[in-house]
């Protein structure tokens, strides 16, 4: 029989992996509603941003994914952000999850994400459109 992965509760997370991505974490939406992180839908983010006075949702399209030069545990993800298609690169742990529009949580290494966080996750790919935030009235 296949061995079950160790439960993430109580396990030490990598320092750059926030605790709120662990399956079962309670997330408060802008309207006060509480949901588990694994139950969040695209609409939850959109509706929360609509309520927010200072944040707005932006579309960030994955343009490139490559391994980090500093560590095999990290990946560099390049996004094209918003209507200006500004290029933004972020260096994240390969298991760091991003929320893809209409799809849900995705990471560069979904197997590690599931192992560490138990968060259902698909493979992040070039062309995926992720949810990101910017400030309203950014000038």
């Amino acid at each position: 029989a296949p061995s079950a992965p160790p439960p993430p509760s109580g396990a030490a997370l990598p320092p750059s992996l926030p605790p709120y991505f662990v399956k079962g974490s309670i997330i408060q939406l802008a309207n006060g509603e509480l949901k588990r992180v694994e139950d969040l839908k695209t609409e939850d983010f959109i509706q929360s941003a609509e309520i927010s006075s200072d944040l707005k949702i932006d579309s960030s399209t994955v343009e490139r994914i490559e391994g980090s030069r500093t560590s095999p545990d990290f990946a560099v993800v390049q996004f094209s952000v918003g209507e200006h298609r500004s290029q933004v690169s972020v260096e994240v742990l390969v298991e760091y999850p991003f929320f893809v529009f209409g799809q849900g949580w995705s990471s560069c290494c979904p197997d590690r994400t599931t192992q560490l966080l138990e968060l259902p996750c698909t493979k992040l790919s070039v062309g995926d459109v992720c949810i990101s935030l910017t400030l309203k009235n950014l000038k």
Binding site: L29, C130, S132, L133
Partner: peptide, 25 residues
């Protein structure tokens, strides 16, 4: 007796990367 521990509640926006695009104009 085990005292109930408070469950942390995280705001929705902490889950979303804050990618502020650079404004060229």
């Amino acid at each position: 007796n085990v005292e109930p521990r408070s469950v942390p509640v995280f705001p929705w926006h902490s889950l979303v990367p804050f990618l502020a695009p650079t404004q060229s104009d």
